[in-house]
């Protein structure tokens, strides 16, 4: 198995409060990593460290390294814009930009300089299909993305990421506000997409991790408590905190 991300003794401070504590592990390429843990355990902060979205905040500081394909993404000369093109992100709340469905999907490719109309059209169809949205919107690509239902919007956001043809996709509780059908569609999409992408899925819903993740990591109070294959974590966790959390004793 090829390694995509290496996290080496990574700590994250926000206003001098240590939010992530000396995290060490590796993320396999072409697999789904589920990250579970109660609210405030540092899952989202960790996820946003992988594409340096935390750069947008002020008052943070990091220690340690995160390596993408062996290269430290926090070294000063690293191009953050290139990083974000390689590592796409879907947020908890679906946020279509206030433009048409089509424009939303081609936003990323256009930024990278893709101008050819035919190429863009292809990308739109391919990405929307992979996000299981094409059939629902193919006749109204030029209406506003904000008119879609919540579940459709979230799949649009996924398609928008796919259109950039990234290497890894980060999902931050992508189905927290969605109905079961939309959730199922997104999960179906992810299981197909992992063949070509490295997927990291933060979720509050342990059952979702159990359903789709190959490996699962359990975070608690800023620490990585346990990491293993999903079946191992859910059937025979080593640590008692993990057991307590997945059996619903807290969180």
């Amino acid at each position: 198995m090829k390694t995509k991300f290496q996290i080496k003794d990574f700590s994250f401070y926000f206003n001098e409060e240590k939010v992530l504590k000396n995290i060490n592990f590796e993320i396999e390429a072409n697999s789904i990593l589920g990250i579970i843990g109660p609210a405030g355990s540092g899952k989202t902060t960790f996820l946003r460290s992988l594409n340096r979205m935390n750069d947008l905040e002020s008052g943070y500081r990091i220690e340690g390294n995160i390596l993408l394909d062996g290269i430290d993404i926090y070294k000063p000369e690293y191009d953050v814009v290139e990083l974000r093109k390689k590592v796409g992100m879907v947020f908890a709340m679906p946020v279509p930009l206030p433009m048409s469905i089509y424009e939303n999907v081609v936003y990323g490719p256009r930024l990278s300089g893709v101008q050819d109309k035919k190429r863009l059209d292809e990308l739109v169809e391919k990405s929307l299909s992979s996000a299981y949205l094409w059939e629902e919107v193919k006749d109204r690509l030029h209406t506003s993305g904000m008119r879609l239902s919540g579940g459709q919007q979230q799949r649009l956001c996924l398609a928008r990421v796919l259109a950039m043809e990234p290497e890894a996709i980060l999902l931050d509780e992508p189905s927290s506000g969605l109905d079961p059908i939309s959730t199922a569609k997104i999960e179906d999409a992810l299981t197909v997409l992992k063949k070509s992408y490295t997927i990291i899925l933060v979720t509050n819903n342990t059952k979702q991790a159990a359903r789709v993740a190959d490996n699962t990591a359990f975070f608690l109070m800023g620490e990585l408590i346990e990491l293993g294959t999903t079946s191992q974590i859910f059937t025979s966790p080593v640590k008692t905190q993990t057991d307590d959390y997945i059996t619903g004793r807290f969180g």
């Binding site: 974000r84 990323g108 990278s112």
Partner: peptide, 12 residues
């Protein structure tokens, strides 16, 4: 969130 989305899609 618009800014976040735009940056996450690789915009400068």
């Amino acid at each position: 969130s618009y800014r976040e989305v735009s940056f996450s899609l690789g915009a400068s």
